[in-house]
Amino acid sequence: MLKILKYSYYDLIRSRWSYVYFLFYLALGFVLLFLNNDLSKAVITLMNVIIVLVPLIGTIFGVMYFYNSKEFTELLLAQPLKRSSIFLGQYFGVAGSLTLSLILGLGIPFTLYGLFKSNAIWDFSLLLATGAFLTLIFTALAFNIAISNENRIKGFGYAVLLWLFLAVVYDGLFLMSLIVFEEYPLDSYSLLATMLNPIDLSRTLILLKLDISALLGYTGAVFKQFFGTDAGLMVSVAMLSMWTVLPLWRLAYKSKHKDF
């Protein structure tokens, strides 16, 4: 698997797209810092970017890479290699290069602007860690979609729909359900609903750092327990790991039963 990872990564690291992705983050970082020079505010703006854009790029890029490397995959399949290592290797190649683009692209400008001397370093590290998780999760979901759909157009469609659903529609439904059932205690429900969507979960994880004062203003005991302690952080990280591992597991399973 490590060999496949190496070659997929090697291939990607030299593709135009990972440069575009890298340069995009680099430019974003510099522009943000140039415009307001305030690390903490830039971190807030970045959060929005990471929550929305990273999943989108992870999804699109994952699907694209999977379909584009179909022939390469077939070449590998004829080699004496285990199937699951072929796909997991490719997956880690893609997810790894995306994550690297993200971390370097944002890390360089922020480091140049004195990140290490600033209090924002923890917020920023959390942001990057969350971004990395989201990349892993959404690339894995994208691979799942692609491996289950031979038709590229369909695959792309589903991938974009998945992103749209998790990034926007889910929250809309969530909000409506909260308002409709506002008479009932909703603490546990809303925490659970948050856990079930990796984007919401990542957002909450960052909120724990950025908007803790607002979150602690709310009365619910469950909320308080969750946000007031490190338990919230730990549960969130555990859930994000689940979100990464489950699609990978399905990917490995699907790959063993698929015809090429």
């Binding site: 090697y10 990607l12 022939e71």
Partner: peptide
């Protein structure tokens, strides 16, 4: 999967990762 060690296969559509050089592809295989 190990039996494939003893089979060579020429696929129908020769489409390889576009960013690799010929030399690298050969070395990779």
């Amino acid at each position: 999967w190990k039996y494939r060690q003893h089979i060579d296969y020429l696929p129908q559509i020769a489409n390889f990762p576009g960013n690799l050089r010929v030399k690298e592809l050969i070395r990779m295989i």
